[in-house]
Design a binder for these strands. Structure first.
Length: 254
DNA sequence: ATGGCTTCATAGTGAAGA
C-alpha cells in the first residue's frame, strides 16, 4: 500500500497537478488538505474517473480535507469527536483495514495569537481522540499538514526561526505527545537527504534556494511501522507552473 | 523591511497562510 499526504492549497487550482500526479505516482490512498472547496463543488467525478473513491469535508475559502482511495473508504469520521470546531480540518476512514486519519493542523499565525492557543487546544483534542482511536484501530496512520517542524533538521534556518510559530517548544511538545501514543514519524525511519523539506514560501525564491520546512508528516502505529518499506518527499510538483507551496510526502507499506 | 507570493474573496483601508 502506497499512501501520501499533500496540502494542495486550493483543489480547484491544483486539480490538473493532482490528476497528473495520481497518474504518475499511483498511490493507493491520498490525504489532501486546504482543498478550500465546499462539498457541493468537490471535483468527485474527475477523481472517480481517475480511479479513486473520495470522501471529503470542505468549506468555502479556508481549510478543507479529503481522502482519495483506490478501494472503498469505510467508517468515515469527520472532525474530532467531542471537539466543537467549525473549521474543516479532520477526516478519517478505514482503507484496506488501515485507519487513515487526515489532518490539517491549525497554523497558529504567531505565538502571541489567539490562533496559537487554538492550535495547542486543537492538538490536545486530537491527541486525546487518537489515544482512544488506537485502541479501536491498532493499524493507524496519521497523515497531514501538521504545521510543526519537529526538529531543527526540519528547517533551513533554526537560529532565525527559534521560538517562532511552527517550531516553538509547545508545538514541538505537542508533536512529541503524538509520538508518545506509539506513533512514529516514518520519514525518520530511513536515511534521508539532508535539508529535506515539504514546504517552501512562495516568496524570496525560497524553493530555488531550498529555504523550506518539513511540516507535512506521516506518523504510523507500530504494526504499520513494521510494514513500512520507504518514505520520501516528492519535490517534482513544486517545480511546476503555479504549484502548491507544499509537496507530497509518500510512505510505502509492504 | 512585519514585506516578499498565492489564494479566495470582494472591490478594502483585504485576510490568511507558514
Amino acid at each position: 500500500m502506497k499512501m501520501a499526504t499533500w496540502n494542495v492549497n486550493s483543489l480547484k487550482v491544483r486539480l490538473p497537478h493532482l490528476l497528473d500526479w495520481l497518474q504518475a505516482a499511483q498511490p493507493d490512498v491520498v490525504c489532501l488538505q486546504e482543498t478550500k472547496t465546499e462539498d457541493k463543488n468537490f471535483p468527485a467525478t474527475e477523481l472517480e474517473q481517475a480511479g479513486y473513491r473520495v470522501v471529503f469535508s470542505g468549506q468555502k475559502t479556508y481549510n478543507g480535507v479529503a481522502i482519495l482511495a483506490k478501494s472503498e473508504p469505510l467508517d468515515v469520521q469527520i472532525g474530532i469527536p467531542g471537539f466543537e470546531d467549525e473549521q474543516r480540518r479532520v477526516i478519517a476512514a478505514t482503507v484496506c483495514g488501515v485507519r487513515i486519519v487526515c489532518v490539517y493542523v491549525p497554523n497558529g499565525q504567531s505565538v502571541d495569537s489567539d490562533k496559537y492557543q487554538y492550535k495547542l487546544r486543537w492538538l490536545e483534542a486530537l491527541t486525546h481522540w487518537l489515544s482512544d482511536e488506537l485502541t479501536r484501530y491498532p493499524e493507524l496512520a496519521l497523515l497531514g499538514d501538521y504545521n510543526i517542524a519537529p526538529d531543527d533538521r526540519d528547517l533551513y534556518d533554526p537560529e532565525g526561526w527559534a521560538g517562532n510559530i511552527l517550531v516553538s517548544e509547545p508545538e514541538r511538545a505537542a508533536f512529541f505527545r503524538l509520538e508518545g501514543l506509539g506513533l512514529k514519524d516514518c520519514f525518520r525511519l530511513f536515511e534521508q537527504p539532508e535539508k529535506s523539506y515539504s514546504w517552501w514560501d512562495y516568496r524570496m525564491m525560497a524553493f530555488r534556494r531550498n529555504m523550506g520546512l518539513r511540516i507535512d508528516h506521516i506518523l504510523l502505529s507500530a504494526p504499520l511501522v513494521a510494514r513500512c518499506t520507504a518514505c520520501s518527499i516528492d519535490r517534482a510538483p513544486r517545480k511546476l507552473e503555479r504549484p502548491s507551496d507544499h509537496t507530497p510526502v509518500i510512505a510505502e507499506l509492504g
